[in-house]
């Protein structure tokens, strides 16, 4: 009996240790970036263009480029993803087709990000002749975040009680009216959460934009959606590995801005989820 108790103690200790090995580095990474990045952050860094071959100046074009890309991706992915989620939650039956659709979504989520980059290059840049542009990059990122939006929206739609649909139909509302007036309004927090998570993902990805949009060094703002643009994650990659003698401060500063942007979006998503879970009316 004492023996089994001791075994349990040892086992639990190792489980605890493993958990620390996962969680502690996460905290350390955030702390390191914040600590070393904060000194670089000032008004000029955030609003100026890069100067002297990116060794000084700011990262404004990269911030704007990332916002454009993320905005474009969501304009493309949200309508398609939402309608696809509505299809899965309200229209599809449990059959072979819906099984295949779900499998396709899982696969879309699992395709390596660099393969999305190749695909974007082949379809949008070369085949559609958009060239390396914000448009090509946005569409590539949009397809990449589609599975996130579909999955979270579908969960949100399915969490609306079935009885509401039945009541609405029994009052003579059509199926679409029921979805539009009863199901969608009550699923909005979940859909919003998914959308913001998708935004965060799109903002942080580098590989899909490597060959579809990114400009190595473009010290001005993009003029149209057919223009190339800088982007934060690619910029961080470039100044970390491709340009020698960049001040550490600038690298950490760029990493901090990117991390803040992405974590901020995640935080917003978590808050929305938490608030509405508490407020749920049924």
């Amino acid at each position: 009996m004492r023996n089994t108790k001791r075994t349990q103690k040892i086992a639990f200790f190792f489980l605890f240790l493993a958990t620390l090995l996962v969680v502690v580095p996460v905290g350390m990474i955030v702390v390191i970036i914040v600590q070393k990045g904060i000194p670089a952050i000032n008004w000029q860094f955030l609003t100026d263009v890069p100067r002297q071959g990116m060794r000084s100046g700011g990262i404004f074009p990269a911030i704007i480029g990332t916002l454009y890309l993320v905005g474009g991706a969501i304009i493309f992915a949200l309508p398609i993803g939402l309608l696809a989620a509505i299809y899965l939650s309200e229209y599809s039956k449990e059959n072979f087709l819906s099984r295949i659709i779900k499998l396709a979504i899982v696969n879309l989520a699992g395709v390596p990000s660099v393969v999305y980059g190749l695909f974007g290059l082949a379809l949008f840049v070369v085949f559609c002749k958009f060239g390396a542009s914000i448009l090509a990059g946005s569409l590539t990122l949009g397809i990449m975040i589609l599975p996130i939006i579909i999955t979270t929206s579908r969960e949100a739609l399915e969490s609306v009680p079935y009885s509401f649909r039945e009541v609405s139909l029994s009052l003579g509302a059509s199926k679409w009216q029921t979805i539009r007036h009863i199901v969608l309004p009550n699923a909005i927090p979940g859909i919003l959460t998914g959308t913001i998570l998708g935004l965060g993902r799109a903002a942080g990805e580098t590989a899909p934009i490597l060959f579809t949009v990114a400009a190595f060094y473009l010290p001005r703002l993009p003029k149209s959606i057919f223009d190339q643009a800088m982007a934060l994650p690619y910029h961080l990659y470039v100044i970390s590995t491709q340009v020698p003698n960049v001040d550490e401060k600038i690298r950490y500063g760029t990493a901090l801005v990117l991390l803040t942007l992405v974590l901020f979006m995640n935080l917003v998503a978590i808050i929305i989820r938490y608030k509405f879970r508490k407020k749920k009316k049924w």
Binding site: V22, V26, I32, G204, E205, L236, Y237, L259, N266
Partner: peptide, 14 residues
């Protein structure tokens, strides 16, 4: 979840 959210380029840099 926080770890999942950190962009891979940031992890590469770190």
């Amino acid at each position: 979840e926080l770890l999942a959210a950190i962009p891979s380029v940031v992890l590469g840099f770190i």
